[in-house]
C-alpha cells in the first residue's frame, strides 16, 4: 500500500515532512519493483544545495540505472550511508530503512502544491501502466 502520510513525485520519489523544516526523501515501492534488484545507490554529498527537480543521484539495479530527482529545493543534511554496503534495503524497505537523503527545505511551505497525494500517485502509476 502507498503510505498516505507522504508526498509523491511523478518520477516516483516520496517525501516525508519531519515537522522541523526538514524532509526525508526516498523512492517508492513501485519504483523499486520496476527497477528490480538494486546493486548501487549514488547519493549527493552532505551540504549540497539542490534545486527542485535537480538530479540528486542515481539508483542502479542489475538491469538498469535510474536517476533520482530531488522533488523540492533544499540543502542536504544527511544521506543514508548504510546503503553503500546494503543497497538492497531500498528494495526491502523503500519507505523505511531504504530512505535516501534528508533535506533542510528552502521553503518551509507544504510541498502539496507541487507533489501528489498517495491517491493521486496511485492513479499516476496506473495511468503509466496503460
Amino acid at each position: 500500500m502507498t503510505p498516505d502520510d507522504l508526498y509523491y513525485s511523478k518520477e516516483h520519489e516520496w517525501l516525508r515532512l519531519e515537522g522541523d523544516g526538514s524532509a526525508t526523501i526516498g523512492i517508492t515501492d513501485h519504483a523499486q519493483q520496476e527497477l528490480g534488484d538494486i546493486v548501487y545507490v549514488e547519493l549527493p554529498d552532505p551540504d549540497s544545495a539542490l534545486e527542485a527537480d535537480e538530479v540528486m543521484g542515481s539508483v542502479e539495479s542489475v538491469k538498469a540505472v535510474s536517476e533520482i530527482f530531488c522533488p523540492v529545493a533544499g540543502t542536504v543534511t544527511a544521506v543514508n550511508e548504510s546503503l553503500e554496503d546494503a543497497p538492497e534495503v531500498v528494495n526491502s524497505d523503500p519507505y523505511g530503512d531504504g530512505w535516501l537523503i534528508r533535506l533542510r527545505l528552502d521553503d518551509a511551505g507544504s510541498p502539496a502544491a507541487t507533489m501528489l497525494s498517495a491517491g493521486d500517485y496511485d492513479k499516476h502509476v496506473a495511468s503509466e501502466a496503460d
Binding site: G36, D37, V39, S61, V62, K63
Partner: peptide, 9 residues
C-alpha cells in the same frame, strides 16, 4: 521473461 523471482536470486 526478464525475471521471475528477481535477477540476483
Amino acid at each position: 521473461p526478464v525475471q521471475f523471482g528477481g535477477v540476483v536470486s
